[in-house]
Structures are given as C-alpha cells and as structure tokens.
Amino acid sequence: MKFGKKALAAGIMASALALSACGDSGSSTDAGGSGDSDKVYIAMISKGFQHQFWQAVKQGAEEKAAELGVEVTFEGPASETEVDGQLQMLQAAIDKKPDAIAYAALDPQACIPLLEQAEAAKIPVVQFDAGCDSEYPVNLAQTNSLDAGALAADHMAELIGGKGEVGIVGHSQINSTGVERRDGFVNRMKEEYPDVKIVDIQYGDGDHLKSADIAKAMIQANPNLKGLYGTNEGSAIGVVNAVNELGLEKGKLKIIGFDSGKAQTDAIRDGVMAGAITQDPIGMGAATVEAAMKAINGEEQEKLTGTPFYFYNAENIDDPEIAPVLYE
C-alpha cells in the first residue's frame, strides 16, 4: 500500500516534470525532426505557436511542404518574451543538422552567435517575420510593419475626417512588430495629418483582458476620443470588448485593428470595428518554405521577400483577395 502510494507519487512527479520540461522547451508542436530519412528536412523556429497568427504560418508552411514533398517541423516558445528559450530551440535545431533552418528572430542581436554556428555547420538559414542582425541568412520573408502601420493611419485619418484625438493600444514596446506598427502609424499621422492628435499610447502585451481595461481607461480619460488603434489581435479585441462593455454606440468610436481571428472579423462584420490590417500568414509560411528550398538547392534569391498586407473592412472582407488570408 505504502509502495503503491510512492509509485503513484513518482508517476505524478515524473509526468509533471515531463510537462514542465516540455514547457521549458516551449511546448513545441511537431518538433520530432527526422535526420535519418532521405526526405529534405526544414526546421522552422518561430516566435510563438499559440497565437492564431503562428498557427496560420505553420499551416502555410506545412501545405507548401506537402506540395514539394519535404518535411518541416514548426516550433516556438510559449510567449514572445522568451528570447532565451527560443535560442535553445534554435541550438537544438542546429544540432539536428537539418537541410535548412527557417528562423523568426525574437531578438535581433541575441541570435547572431547561433547563426554563426549554423554557418559553420553549413546549414542554410532563411528567415520569416523578423530578421536577425546577421549577414548569413539568405532570405527574409516579412511584412513591412512600418508601411502596414502607416496604412492603418491613412484609414484612421479618413474615418475621423482628418482631425481629432486618437489613442493606441499596443502589444509591445520592445519587439519589432509592436514598435514598427506603432511608429508607422504615429509617423504617418505626424507627416500627413497634422490635425490628428495621438493622445495616449499604452501596452497590454496582447492580453485580451488587460487591453480591454486599458482601452476603457483611455476612453474614460479622453472624452473626445474619436478613434482607437489596436496593434495586434489581442489588443484590437481588447478595444472591441471595452467599447461593448461601456455600451458605446456602434461605430461612433472608430476602431482599427490588426490581423484577424473570429472575434475580430465578427466585430468588423457587425460594425463595431471599422476595419483592420491583415498580413498573409499562410503566404508567409509558404514563401518561407520556398525560400528554404531555393537555399538548399543553391539558387540565387533576393534578400527580402515582402509578404503582402491589406486593409479590410465590412465591404471587402469576403473579396477573393482578402478572404483566404484571414484566419478564424
């Protein structure tokens, strides 16, 4: 009886440890890795995997891989702050000696030594979403976030008639997409729309609840607020929740968001949100695998692949150009 209890305890501990170890390595998905099969193998190290955006990149990569008859694995840390955890994944990927590595840098500096290792091991590296400050990678498939932020500003200015107060609920003041989507928006307003005043910028880490509370405080503090810009999915939904909870008249406050997800597309169809900028994550995943194949085959390619982005609203949400790049 006593022994049974102990064995059960050991079992529970072991499974807890296994889970925690899994957590440390970032709760990777499909990080099996081949190595011994003859199939070309590309290891993708992403900035995350829980977010629907990354799931869509993964989908695009896997579809392209199936089409080309190659194998990809896709893993990323549990949160986009885990720079260290991601580097350990990159290290493990190098050690597995894949035919190519596709990498999305969480931090542009921290990754440099590891990419030097990849170079020494003669593993070609391509990048997606965000680049490392290293000369070695042959390609970067990326949405230009500054331009995307500026596009959001153009539409915001148009919606509020070129003047008035707007606020920004950001998702990060550190990582490049957070900074550039904000700066692109702020700079465009400054340059082109001098009568639009950005009264507040705050950051909710993309947490739906935190972003909602931030947006509410911002609306309370600025009674003349005409528009709010949420720089990623969680931030944008937070703004929508805030407006719903405050019971504001639909569409009175102009909301522009980023990316998609069911809650956001519903809000746009419903008229609570004016529109959002979407990238093409599925296309980004496919472009990354293509670039990796070119690198493996030693083909020349441009250093930068600009993946497209679009503004969508209730009118064009079902257009053939837009609908396929939106994810649930």
Binding site: I12, M13, S15, A16, L17, L19, S20, C22, G23, S27, T29, F49, Q50, Q52, Q55, A78, G261, K262, A263, D266, E328
Partner: peptide, 24 residues
C-alpha cells in the same frame, strides 16, 4: 502547485487545440 500550473497550462492548449474557443 507549480507542477499543477504547468500541467494546467499545457492541458488548456491541448484541450482547446491551441486556438481560442468563441462563445458567440
């Protein structure tokens, strides 16, 4: 409870299929 924290975090992702569930 630290172990349970990690187990719950993992299971939440597993059970949901790593995607949000909407109650609309």
């Amino acid at each position: 409870t630290l172990a349970m924290m990690m187990i719950a975090q993992g299971l939440a992702l597993v059970v949901s299929g790593v995607r949000p569930i909407y109650f609309s």
